[in-house]
Measured scan of single mutants.
Amino acid sequence: CHSECLGNCSQPDDPTKCVACRNFYLDGRCVETCPPPYYHFQDWRCVNFSFCQDLHHKCKNSRRQGCHQYVIHNNKCIPECPSGYTMNSSNLLCTPCLGPCPKVCHLLEGEKTIDSVTSAQELRGCTVINGSLIINIRGGNNLAAELEANLGLIEEISGYLKIRRSYALVSLSFFRKLRLIRGETLEIGNYSFYALDNQNLRQLWDWSKHNLTITQGKLFFHYNPKLCLSEIHKMEEVSGTKGRQERNDIALKTNGDQASCENELLKFSYIRTSFDKILLRWEPYWPPDFRDLLGFMLFYKEAPYQNVTEFDGQDACGSNSWTVVDIDPPLRSNDPKSQNHPGWLMRGLKPWTQYAIFVKTLVTFSDERRTYGAKSDIIYVQTDATNPSVPLDPISVSNSSSQIILKWKPPSDPNGNITHYLVFWERQAEDSELFELDYCLKGLKLPSRTWSPPFESEDSQKHNQSEYEDSAGECCSCPKTDSQILKELEESSFRKTFEDYLHNVVFVPRKT
């Protein structure tokens, strides 16, 4: 048989008469490798580009789960590009990614509803959504962080984005990388972005840091009482949809009607710091009717980097990364020049730590249904340095008659930039024990000054392991946590139920 035959053949030295091919099969003959313009397919066939392209389009058009959109890589027609490569849609070739590779997620039936953290986790790592997304989240724990972890990498949506009755959302900033909504599939009414009845939605994105392009379709905003109209108009300008909307697409009466839409800028007039305090004062603000001013709200939190936005980490279910302080308005003076500047002394802060701070007014709604208010920009203030805590785990070892090696770990709280350490030492008198000992005694162990690591005695271990207080009263049991108490109650309830079950099964009433 021919060298490319495997198993047997019907005619000697003829690659077209093989029972099976050793390498690849091409047009009725066995070959060692697939010549151009053919590609290896499933490690035994040679196919042309049209064959591989037909497989790709067949799966793409069917949208069946589990099928493969075949691509070409290293002269092979394979189910998908290997790690580190992405497909070129024009020629199906796998090309190296520039940075992290995109991950295209194809949605069944063309859309997916995100109504819980669990459903959001199914899209973790996706960068391109081939379909439409509907966000409908009523509640949950730590929602802002969970949504950002699972949806934060999405850069492109081919269909539309719909935010509907998501009472738990305060902001859409968890879509931190969303840059493009194509609108290839539109919501009824030709809408590519749809926001309806979101009672706590206050911000779409921080438009000073976020760009969003909507290729096709219109915007729809109705019944978002805490979303200011200025935020919607800003989205029109940034996304390129200005002029597409009709009169009733953006409701003037049901958007922002319960919001404090600040239209003035508060400026800080005085800032002073110490290692654990920050004193702030800002310019006074009074609405047209000074009785509408209820006070100020001061927001602050630790910020290692200057990239904080107002609604980071917030949701309507209680999660809030900001510390909020309510401040009463100052006494009002008739003389504008003698107006008191409101302020606040922030206490209990960490030394040498940068804080993000902003302040906003708290006002009631005027009778004319106009909203007044003022808010400052987010500023960054760093507390002063102070003395560091003591170095940890000092170790001293003498390696000769004239040297001592000293080692330690950095302090747990540096409280500033540590530039150097101060080492103090003092000579001590020799131990009298060394002169009084009889060095001729056998088995004498000389006193040693070398360091030995501390260890816990058996008594201390027994005390720590004991669940009861000892007789001397030195140790006591740790208080039980809520989960331990709940577990004990469940076990007790189970024992009672099981005992009742045994009584009912074992003891049967005697027939009379």
Rank of each mutant, 00 (worst) to 15 (best):
K218N: 15
A149M: 12
H341K: 13
S398P: 09
E231D: 15
T113I: 09
Q314L: 11
R272W: 14
N307D: 15
G125L: 10
P388F: 02
R332K: 11
D249F: 09
L147Q: 04
Y355L: 00
F275N: 12
D393F: 15
Y300C: 15
E246T: 08
I157Y: 01
A259W: 05
N200Y: 05
A120Y: 05
L227R: 00
L331V: 13
T364S: 11
S333R: 14
S269T: 07
G256D: 01
W322Y: 08
Y305S: 08
G140I: 14
I327G: 02
I378N: 02
S260A: 09
Q403T: 13
N263Y: 02
T215L: 03
R244P: 11
V324S: 02
D115T: 10
C126Y: 02
S389M: 03
T254N: 12
L252S: 13
K360C: 04
N150S: 06
W205V: 09
K103H: 02
N255S: 07
S321F: 14
L201V: 09
L349E: 00
L212D: 03
I135R: 01
D115K: 15
I157D: 01
T127A: 12
G159N: 03
K242N: 08
G243W: 06
C126R: 00
Y167C: 03
I157F: 04
V363A: 02
W207V: 12
L108K: 13
L180G: 10
S321K: 14
A303N: 07
F311S: 10
R247S: 12
R164F: 08
L331F: 07
R247T: 11
V238G: 13
K242M: 10
L180C: 13
Q339L: 10
P288M: 08
L252R: 08
V325T: 11
I137A: 13
V363D: 04
S269M: 10
E237H: 14
Q203H: 05
L147P: 01
Y372L: 04
L153M: 14
G217Q: 11
R179M: 13
D206F: 06
P391Q: 01
I163R: 01
K267D: 05
N263E: 14
Q203D: 14
G183Y: 05
E283L: 09
Y223L: 03
R165M: 08
S389H: 04
T383V: 05
L147F: 10
T213R: 09
R176Y: 12
Y160T: 08
L147A: 06
S173Q: 09
F296R: 01
W207H: 10
E111V: 08
R332N: 06
H106R: 06
P394M: 05
L345Y: 12
A168I: 08
R176L: 06
A145L: 12
F299S: 02
G240L: 15
P288D: 05
F311C: 09
A251K: 07
T323Y: 03
V359I: 12
A259V: 06
